[in-house]
Design a protein around this nucleic acid. Structure first.
Lengths: 117, 117
DNA sequence: TACATAATTGCATGAATATGCAAATGAGTC
DNA sequence: GACTCATTTGCATATTCATGCAATTATGTA
C-alpha cells in the first residue's frame, strides 16, 4: 500500500484548522453549530451564536471570521444579517484524509525499529 | 441514522488535541514522526527529534510532553533515553469519530432551516 | 565516587492573541 | 435624511504560551 503523505505538504492548512479549533470559545461555537444542526438549524446569525458564549459580540464576530478563514464555516450575507453555517463535508474530509495518512504511514511497517545511532 | 454526539461531551479531549497540534513547532514534530515511520523508525529519542527543529532541546522536551499529554505520542523510558512514538491508531480513531459525528449531525437534515426568530 | 550523557524543570522574557469597549460600517425602514 | 438593527473594526489591555538559558534530575560508566 502506498503511503499518502499529501498532508505533509498540506500542513499549512492543517495548522490553520488546528489553531482555529484549538481555542475554547471557538470550539464552543463549533459545538453549537453541530447541536443546532441536530435541531434542523444549519444557519445562524452572529447574534444567535452569541447566545451560546459568554463573550462580547465583537469577539464572537472575530471568532467566526477566524473559523471561516480556516475553512470551518461558510458565510452568506442576507440583508442585515450574515448567516454562518458549518462546512461539515469539508472538515470531515480533511479529518479523514489525515487519519488515513497517519495510519498508512505508520501501521504497515514490519518492526519497531528505533532511530539509527 | 442516529447522530453521534459523543464528541460534544469529549470536547475537553478534542480541545487538548487541537491545542497540541495547533502550534507550528509541535506540528513539525508530528510530521517528523510520520516521516520517520515511513523510513521504518517508529521510536525517537528527544535528541533525535531535536534535529528536525530549530529550537532548544528544552523546548523540544516540553513540546513532547505536551503532545504526550494530548494523546498524540507515547513515551517509553529505556536507560538514559526516553523513546517517543506516534499514537497513530489513537489519533486516527479520534479524527474519524469526529468526522463521523460532524457528518451525521449535519448531513441528514431535510431542509436548510435558518435560526428561529 | 567522579564523570558523562539524556532529559526535564525553574525562571525570565518576548511574542501572539483573546477580550471588551467604543466607534464605524452596512442594510433596511420610517 | 434620520433612525434602528446587525456586524465589523480600531484600539488598549490582559492573558496565554513559546522560547532560551541555566540548573537539576536520572541513568549509566570508568
Amino acid at each position: 500500500m502506498k503511503c499518502e503523505t499529501n498532508f505533509i505538504e498540506n500542513s499549512e492548512k492543517l495548522l490553520k484548522l488546528f489553531k482555529a479549533l484549538g481555542d475554547k470559545s471557538r470550539l464552543n461555537i463549533f459545538k453549537y453549530f453541530c447541536q443546532c444542526s441536530l435541531d434542523g438549524t444549519q444557519e445562524n446569525s452572529v447574534n444567535n451564536i452569541k447566545s451560546c458564549c459568554d463573550i462580547d459580540l465583537s469577539v464572537v464576530s472575530r471568532h467566526l471570521a477566524a473559523l471561516k478563514k480556516a475553512g470551518v464555516l461558510n458565510a452568506k450575507k442576507e440583508g442585515k444579517n450574515v448567516f454562518y453555517s458549518l462546512n461539515a463535508k469539508g472538515i470531515a474530509t480533511t479529518l479523514r484524509e489525515l487519519a488515513d495518512s497517519i495510519e498508512s504511514c505508520c501501521s504497515d511497517n514490519t518492526k519497531n525499529h528505533k532511530e539509527k545511532p
